[in-house]
């Protein structure tokens, strides 16, 4: 494996020997993550690619605390050992955007209500008014940076927004209270190409502005190369390629394919990735 940095003091996220087995000791047993040790440093913007079933989502889910790793594995966020901390208790550290637009927002609530929920990430909720004047002012300011006109629609129920608008709002919600790390799991995967491009540009802008430490899964090699400061490729539950910003800048998609083949010791045969490769070529 190329370029693993150990014992760095500025690690925001540390995985140590993380393995995840699903349906253990049944015929369906799957080792989704296999002994992963991995560091994300302050203000890294890591893009992750890999074939279907490589374990990308499982890794993000384990970081977010949806389920624990197998015994022996450890997860640190900053200095905190969060391995046994159930999801909602580590929400203060982790912001997320999912692939499906309806997963990141509450559809029946308005834009301002969704943002009010988000701004209290990991904090104690009390009997104060959730949507206050001061908060609305802040929401308008944050939303106006998106250039989607959402700042004038604070009282609109979120389920009347388009998929792209919902993902943009999810991004603001995920970052507004400055979590330690932002996890994006193919968050433009369900959008049409034009909208996907807009939301990716917004992602880049927000990550840059908020200096967010970010891990983004994408199925598009070009996006993975173009965005971010570091690129990781996963295969069969392992990280097989890890490329820093310096090398990433000089890389082309074809280099990436051969890097994968070399590291995984097999030919590259994932349809979805070859497809995005082909799109890039034409």
């Amino acid at each position: 494996m190329i370029g693993i940095h150990m014992n760095q003091t500025d690690s925001i996220l540390k995985l140590r020997n993380v393995t995840k087995t699903f349906a253990r000791q049944t015929v369906d047993e799957v080792i989704a993550l296999s002994d992963i040790t991995f560091d994300v440093h302050n203000q890294d913007f890591v893009t992750i690619i890999g074939s279907n079933g490589a374990g990308k989502s499982t890794m993000l889910n384990i970081v977010a605390g949806l389920y624990p790793p197998d015994r022996g594995g450890k997860i640190y966020i900053g200095e905190n050992d969060v391995t046994r901390l159930i999801g909602y208790k580590r929400a203060g550290f982790v912001g997320r955007v999912w692939q499906q637009p309806d997963l990141g927002t509450a559809g029946h609530l308005t834009i301002e209500e969704n943002l009010s929920l988000a701004i209290l990430r990991g904090k104690r909720r009390g009997l104060r008014r959730a949507v206050s004047k001061a908060r609305k002012e802040l929401f308008r300011k944050e939303l106006s940076l998106l250039n989607l006109g959402l700042e004038d629609r604070l009282k609109t129920p979120v389920n009347t927004l388009s998929g792209g608008q919902r993902q943009a709002l999810s991004l603001v919600m995920a970052t507004i209270s400055k979590p330690s790390i932002l996890l994006l799991d193919e968050h433009v995967g369900a959008l049409d190409p034009n909208t996907a491009k807009t939301v990716l540009e917004l992602t880049d802008k927000i990550v840059e502005r908020e200096q967010m430490t970010t891990v983004m899964v994408t199925h598009n090699m070009e996006v993975a190369l173009h965005l971010g400061t570091r690129l990781i490729m996963m295969n069969k539950g392992k990280i097989v390629v890890d490329i820093d910003a310096e090398r990433k800048r000089r890389l082309k998609v074809s280099d990436l394919v051969s890097a994968f083949e070399q590291a995984a010791g097999e030919s590259f045969d994932d349809d979805s990735i070859l497809l995005s490769h082909a799109e890039h070529m034409k």
């Binding site: 509450a106 209500e113 929920l117």
Partner: peptide, 28 residues
């Protein structure tokens, strides 16, 4: 009044999208 407070809002959101509400640190 109550459903507009921070706790009340979390309660309303729980019925809407529980996973997301937990993602923001609410014990649903």
């Amino acid at each position: 009044w109550f459903l507009r407070t921070e706790i009340g809002l979390a309660l309303r959101a729980t019925g809407d999208n529980e996973e997301m509400v937990r993602g923001f640190g609410v014990d649903t």
